[in-house]
Simulated assay, not measured.
Amino acid sequence: MKRLVFMGTPDFSVPILEKLMLTEYEIVLVVTQPDRPKGRKKIVTPPPVKKTAEKYEIPVLQPEKLNDEYKKILAYKPDIIITAAYGQILPKELLETPEFGCINVHASLLPELRGGAPIHYAILQGKQKTGITLMYMAEKLDAGDIIVQQSVKIAAADHVGTLHDKLSETGALLLADTLPEIFAQNITPESQDESLATFAFNIKRDQERIDWQNPHDVIYNHIRGMHPWPVAFTTYDGGQMKIWWGEMDNHTYKGSPGEIVDIVDNEAFVVVCGNQKGLRITEVQPAGKKRMTVSQYLQGSPDRIKTGIVLGD
């Protein structure tokens, strides 16, 4: 029986680990990030993959730095190491020791969108498809040889959350289907074309801010490319307002970018964008409050949202 070490951390990794549990292979160790403080109360919380591993009574290792503890992983004598959104670069010794190598499940069609936020960037860039790549890991970021790929369509209403789930499930199925071919050595990997490489580095705080000078379709992609995390925001009334959801409005409006030009049935407000088209905002989170519909916000604060107000700096 082949011995697998699985390395992953967030929710994306969980369906992949659970699918591996249904295969004929033995998962001898799960490696994940250390427990971290979460939320406003900074409660130390284990990563989702750790919770799953413990449910199946699989040994768990949580090194702060792999370079300090990689020998503990090799002590389990893995035939293959599989990673999925683990969160650290693997040292050369880990890459080279397993007989069948180290395989990564990456959420893009490489060489597009290398890096830690490929799902966000696929939507931010308005792509109509993305996918899963299984690749042999290399020392360079997401640059290893491609084993197999599978495309996934991006619907116009998809956001990071829905696309995340589609890709995670696709990755789990693709990996389970491909592992027998890897072990049978029936795979002919293909090198990536470096000239086509693009990058999807982790989202920074300033990227969450909406620029109302952009066209309405770009801003719509921005909102769904930040939903449900980390969430797009704009400035309003001396503070910040998170914009959880909105819809494109293809009417042409007079007004400055960021200006509220209409209140629609007390359920949404329309903001003018840089191309003079509108964005109909339906869910918000004012500073210091919980996420709510615009209807709920208007009921509680009927005088706060009016036409003529300009959002943004």
Results as ranks from 00 to 15, higher is better:
residue 109 L to M: 11
residue 111 P to F: 02
residue 111 P to H: 01
residue 111 P to N: 02
residue 113 L to K: 07
residue 113 L to T: 00
residue 114 R to Y: 02
residue 114 R to L: 00
residue 116 G to W: 11
residue 118 P to F: 03
residue 119 I to T: 03
residue 119 I to D: 02
residue 119 I to V: 09
residue 119 I to Q: 04
residue 120 H to R: 03
residue 122 A to E: 00
residue 124 L to N: 06
residue 125 Q to M: 09
residue 127 K to A: 09
residue 128 Q to N: 11
residue 129 K to N: 09
residue 129 K to D: 01
residue 130 T to D: 05
residue 133 T to A: 00
residue 134 L to F: 07
residue 134 L to A: 01
residue 135 M to A: 12
residue 135 M to K: 06
residue 136 Y to R: 05
residue 137 M to K: 04
residue 138 A to Y: 07
residue 139 E to H: 13
residue 139 E to N: 12
residue 141 L to T: 05
residue 142 D to E: 05
residue 143 A to F: 04
residue 145 D to M: 10
residue 146 I to D: 03
residue 147 I to D: 04
residue 149 Q to S: 07
residue 149 Q to R: 13
residue 149 Q to G: 08
residue 149 Q to A: 07
residue 150 Q to W: 10
residue 152 V to F: 12
residue 152 V to C: 13
residue 155 A to Y: 15
residue 155 A to G: 15
residue 158 D to S: 07
residue 158 D to Q: 06
residue 158 D to F: 12
residue 159 H to T: 14
residue 160 V to R: 04
residue 160 V to N: 08
residue 161 G to K: 10
residue 163 L to P: 06
residue 163 L to S: 05
residue 167 L to M: 10
residue 167 L to D: 09
residue 169 E to N: 12
residue 169 E to P: 07
residue 170 T to E: 07
residue 170 T to D: 06
residue 171 G to Y: 00
residue 172 A to V: 00
residue 173 L to G: 07
residue 174 L to E: 03
residue 180 P to R: 06
residue 181 E to L: 11
residue 181 E to W: 09
residue 183 F to I: 04
residue 185 Q to T: 13
residue 185 Q to D: 13
residue 185 Q to S: 13
residue 186 N to I: 10
residue 187 I to M: 12
residue 190 E to T: 13
residue 190 E to M: 13
residue 191 S to A: 14
residue 191 S to Y: 14
residue 191 S to D: 15
residue 192 Q to H: 08
residue 192 Q to C: 02
residue 193 D to Q: 10
residue 194 E to H: 15
residue 195 S to T: 11
residue 196 L to D: 01
residue 196 L to M: 10
residue 197 A to Y: 00
residue 198 T to V: 09
residue 199 F to H: 03
residue 200 A to I: 02
residue 202 N to H: 09
residue 205 R to V: 13
residue 205 R to Q: 15
residue 206 D to A: 15
residue 206 D to Y: 15
residue 206 D to W: 15
residue 207 Q to W: 14
residue 207 Q to Y: 15
residue 209 R to N: 13
residue 210 I to D: 01
residue 213 Q to T: 12
residue 213 Q to V: 05
